[in-house]
Design a binder for these strands. Structure first.
Lengths: 343, 343
DNA sequence: GTTAGCACTCACGCTGAATGAGTGCTAACA
DNA sequence: TGTTAGCACTCATTCAGCGTGAGTGCTAAC
């Protein structure tokens, strides 16, 4: 279907376009790379490539631009693997030193890291669907009037908030209460702590409405959190550096989309059964119409086969696939071990 | 200096310009408001106002645009106070219901709230300079191999992270260690926990290097956190809606500035001695050259006279001062009581 | 199969004219 | 003395027209 020379030409066009964002002309190829053939010949090949659906022309007298199909072919069977530079490896290896102790923080800073390394927008979806169960709660005394309520879940996540201590209640009483409530809720999935259970909690903490309200609120929040899929967006500013986003309205449109959690969740939804590798979605392959001139490289974290989150890099189809993929691959594996050792 | 009619005209021009972002012409004023005078008369007055430094002309045949001086005059002695709508009050009153229990969360969501309400970029600087002291630390058991290390400060802030339990160490031993370290550090300002103290901590936890390293890391982090002035940026997207930021490069420039924590810290630095009211900085009054076409409304939180943070709304000079100021004023007072009751 | 040559297309940039939104000035008017 | 109608003037903006140059596609010769 495509002869080796066409393949070569296609590759050069794609790589040229990725780095310049300008339609590529036959003469440019001839000049820049010594293929031993004339622009005219290249033109003929380009014409064929266009017929095959790999190239497109913005208008008659412009050079050619790779189609989604071309990028797909490039990613699947042309691109050389790409290695992560030592500097990038070092950046990743050091990045989590100061930030590894809290899931939200990890996700948030992963988004930052990804966008910094790939010069593109990044999305991280923390999918905590029914992950954790209640372990126990405890009051940490602060002063005469306040204590800190800590709720500990079996995945190591902790929620704490300040509560007012009922006048005259002593630490021992608080501990007693904590123990009673803890025994009641122990082992319950956080997102299943509903009104009936909270009713029982009420019977434990009947003494003080205020305290009860505080505890309930914290429990609710933690349950809510554990249910929600939180989206972290990183490096939105990167968009502004891409020539394809010179137009403020286009930026606004895309940013508007990415700020809607629902849209992003849809976008990143992964087929439960898919293999655990990277997934690359290119241009028109995207179902969401607002990003059909964008590509996305996506990786999913699993812990014991259970999906914990998804991270993705989103950029113009003219993306440095080699770089992005290798970085994501490295980071993906790095996080795997991070998660594995952290828990 | 300015007669009542000029005053009126200036006011109308400012308000017109604020709402349209277009240079205001004499005829526009005459048409839109029934002043009983002709455009020619208005022109004469405008000419005077220009001489006085209140108006500027982008070019000869354009209408007039208010100068920084005009806005200053407007804010100081022309603007009617402006009330917060019931909807806005309700939004503020409800906003912190779910988010009040953690300082960072409060700041972050304040930034979001501010930018949402004022349709402008918001900045919140959490200035925790030397605020908190170490109270105690504690290990919350998780499973056989892990525990959660909680460090509690006297301002109610908590830091927790997961640590590996040395093989075979029993909860009681952990508690004993925690007590020992706590007694050692109790009352020390977090940002003064330095190498000498940590050396003493080492002597407490001599048994296990790994555990020691974890504890030190957490202490360091918390110390670092308490020292740092954290900047929260809200609603950067709002910029894109302002006609003065139609140009991507301008947006990039400003966003670049606002992403540099140091710059923002400088920008928000408040003269320690200033009164606790709102501070409005208009256009060329700004020292930072990148934002001399912007205005900033700024409020400072204090708790017991000590500065805890600063919040600001940043927008084009053509800002709805009345709205922004009233919202900030209301929010400011609201947060004051929130802080007062929370601690 | 390759390529030189040439016709053709079309975006882009420049120029100049028309347009219209403004102002400033002047002279007349109340 | 303040107001205003009228008019000249300025200048950004728009648009058509034109030349230019970067491309391609085709053809004929090698």
């Amino acid at each position: 279907m495509m002869n080796p020379r066409q393949r070569k030409i296609l590759q050069l066009i794609i790589e040229d376009y990725i780095s310049t964002a300008e339609p590529v002309a036959s003469r440019t190829i001839a000049r820049r790379h010594d293929l031993g053939i004339s622009p005219a010949t290249i033109r003929n090949e380009m014409s064929d490539l266009e017929l095959l659906g790999y190239l497109e022309q913005p208008h008659t007298s412009a050079g050619r631009v790779p189609s989604s199909r071309a990028y797909r072919y490039y990613v699947d069977s042309m691109m050389e693997p790409g290695t992560v530079t030592a500097a990038d490896r070092a950046l990743i290896n050091g990045w989590y030193k100061e930030r590894r102790r809290n899931l939200d923080e990890i996700f948030q800073s992963t988004a930052k890291l990804l966008s910094r390394m790939t010069q593109n927008v990044s999305l991280v979806l923390a999918d905590k669907q029914g992950s954790a169960s209640f372990l126990y709660l405890r009051f940490l005394p602060l002063d005469r009037e306040h204590a800190i309520l800590c709720i500990v879940a079996d995945d190591g996540s902790v929620d704490n908030c300040m509560v007012d201590i009922p006048l005259g209640m002593r630490p021992a009483e608080l501990d007693y209460l904590a123990g009673k409530v803890s025994r009641l809720l122990e082992g319950k999935p956080l997102n299943q702590i509903g009104d009936e259970l909270l009713q029982e909690v009420h019977e434990c903490i009947i003494e003080d409405e205020m305290l009860f309200a505080n505890v309930v609120q914290a429990l609710r929040r933690m349950g809510g959190r554990s249910r929600e899929q939180k989206v972290f967006l990183g490096g939105a500013k990167q968009l502004l550096n891409k020539p394809e986003f010179r137009d403020v309205d286009r930026v606004k449109e895309l940013l508007g989309l990415l700020e809607e959690e629902k849209v992003v969740r849809d976008l990143l939804q992964i087929d439960e059964g898919s293999d655990s590798g990277l997934k690359v979605t290119i241009g028109t392959e995207n179902k969401l119409s607002g990003i059909q001139d964008c590509s996305m490289v996506q990786a999913t974290y699993r812990v014991n086969g259970r999906i914990v989150g998804t991270m993705a890099v989103l950029g113009p189809t003219r993306m440095e696939y080699g770089k992005v993929i290798s970085v994501m691959d490295y980071l993906h594996r790095y996080l795997k071990t991070l998660f594995a050792t952290a828990r």
